[in-house]
Design a protein around this nucleic acid. Sequence first.
DNA 1: ATGACGACGTCTCGTCGA
Length: 312
Amino acid sequence: MKLATFNINGIRSRLPSLINWLDKEQPDIACLQELKAPDSAFPEAELQDAGYGAIWHGQTSWNGVAILAKGTKPTETRRGLPGGDADTHSRYIEAAVNGLLVGCLYLPNGNPQPGPKFDYKLEWFERLIAYAQTLFDSGHPVVLAGDYNVVPTDFDIYNPRSWLKDALLQTESRECYARLLEQGWTDALRKRFPEDKVFTFWDYFRRHWETNSGLRIDHLLLSASVAPALRDAGVDKWVRGEAHASDHAPTWIELKLDTRKANDEAVKNAAKSAATRSTRSPQPAKAAKTAKAAKTAKTAKSPATKSRKTPS
DNA sequence: ATGACGACGTCTCGTCGA
């Protein structure tokens, strides 16, 4: 199962590029940010023709988020973060797709800082942190994907020198991101590439793409039950190299999250366990002890199996 | 300190992004 996040910087201007990418890479789920279009301008029919169902939360000119799913329409579970009644920006949308809960977010940029925009960024971040805790604690398989507008460390940028005053590198921004991770989330790209420079954004200025002067600001965070299912991750850099490209590249993860298979195995194991108990009924105490030991060994060997949840 | 580039709307410049 491939899940991607892509800040497309204008869905109308980028539609041919988006369709081309979907066609070539076939993500099962795609989180989009910066639609820069009102709800009425969302290209639902064109995406349907490309094989994707969608939910979206648009806004004139700015922001805007959407979740696409191949061959199905995502089941929307939320739009906007809790506590944001006065917030008019379209920056969060969430859906269930095949038992996985997907949060698609576009965190405020925050420039210039200091100032009201940076304050808004930190406020929004606090609301995300609070809500993310409840998601994580639920034990449900969750992926929080999007444009976080945070360069987590100096290793996540070609050279921090000319960005030191930028909102993306501020200590406050980084501390918020670190606090989010401390809840237990796995930063999938960093997990997959612990020692490589990985970029997801190259600005249009100063030949930054041509010189690979990038930033890593698009992140996919995995909850405890999803993290063991991570098989691969990457950045579709070729998209950034196309003519008329967004300044971000699609960033993706590959998960082996077959909940149905996990359920089948659980049923099989339960049946086997019951059979073992019945054959050893003359020595119930010993049988229970053996079963318990076996269970403990299995859990230690494969925590992923234990933590997988049934889709709701 | 500014601007480089690109999208969008108010529409040919101003505002915003990162």
